[in-house]
Design a protein around this nucleic acid. Structure first.
Lengths: 187, 187
DNA sequence: ACCTGAACACCGTTCAAGT
DNA sequence: ACCTGAACACCGTTCAAGT
């Protein structure tokens, strides 16, 4: 913990983004339990008050962290990649990158923006094949929730289960079944 | 908060089950954030020390609460109910009863015992149709994780999303796709 | 042996007082 | 106007002292 001395100028120029940056650095270094308003403030060299005026409260800080972590998680489809192939690849990439964060508690947060950022390329790929927009949105939401849910449970049970290898296979089946179902249902 | 006065006799006869009972009562009355070692101890009329000697620490108390909440969530199959019908019914019942608890944070906990209690009737129904035990276990785990994951995300986003009605439909599709997939894969 | 009161090292949040 | 130090009301956990 590199506590800097309080600095009034620093506090007055502080932005919400800087606070989230610092909170994510604490998360990365010492885990989510170490992320507190006081700790983040100390790390920034200010009192807790500016955090309250910039981000609201701790709940809002956690939401903002979740939102940030949800950015840039998925790749774009390849030029001639059929949508079912892309959908499967999207699911596996999302799982791998979410698992890498190692804490399920932020996973379950994140509102509309996070969802839009993650599902946009998938929805775009589906509508490019003349699938109706509302059907595409429902399909993307189904896949997003399935993957995030799976990851949340996986992280929550880390180590408690016998076979780490079998989890991969269960997830692959899960994705296959969902995409097969969508392939039959989407026009 | 009905804080009773400290009572030594009470403390010496205290059991782990009583502590979990009281913690669940606090959860029910004031939500998970109100469940603290001090609060549960006060409610029981003892100091926090007996809680540490009976359940270990707060982490262990939360695990024990999760385990308790995972008991008795699913019904048994009907006498002539085909397994795909039962699997779908099992998923919908599990979702409804888990949603009723209203907090996703305990959902993601729960180890082997909780999983066994919930999946046992489903695994039994599958093996009764001559499906191999390991295949049945994998199938039950796939459905369990899918449902719990879906519910965790649903609870985490309560109110933040536009259409409450559409969620039901997305979940129903989700279940249908999974059971259809299993129906094709299981011998 | 096993409890209680008190303490330690933290929290989230908000106050009066300072610049 | 917007900060800081100090305070309030809590935490999880563990200590010495009591029965």
């Amino acid at each position: 913990m590199v506590a800097v001395k309080p600095d009034r100028r620093r506090a007055e120029q502080l932005t919400a983004d800087e606070i989230v940056d610092t909170a994510l650095a604490v998360l990365d270094r010492d885990g989510l339990d170490a992320v507190s308003m006081r700790r983040v403030a100390a790390e920034l060299g200010v009192s807790p008050i500016p955090l309250y005026s910039r981000v609201g409260n701790k709940e809002a800080l956690l939401d903002a962290m979740a939102e940030r972590l949800a950015q840039g998680l998925v790749d774009e489809p390849g030029p001639a990649e059929p949508w079912p192939d892309y959908a499967r690849r999207w699911c596996h990439a999302l799982r791998a990158r979410r698992l890498a964060f190692g804490d399920s508690r932020l996973l379950v947060r994140g509102g509309r923006e996070a969802m839009v950022a993650t599902t946009r390329p998938l929805i775009a790929r589906l509508t490019a094949d003349d699938i109706a927009t509302d059907r595409a949105i429902d399909a993307a939401r189904l896949l997003l929730w399935s993957v995030l849910g799976h990851v949340a449970i996986e992280l929550g049970r880390a180590g408690s289960d016998s076979s780490e290898v079998a989890v991969e296979a269960v997830f692959a089946d899960h994705v296959r079944y969902l995409v097969d179902g969508l392939e039959r249902d989407l026009p």
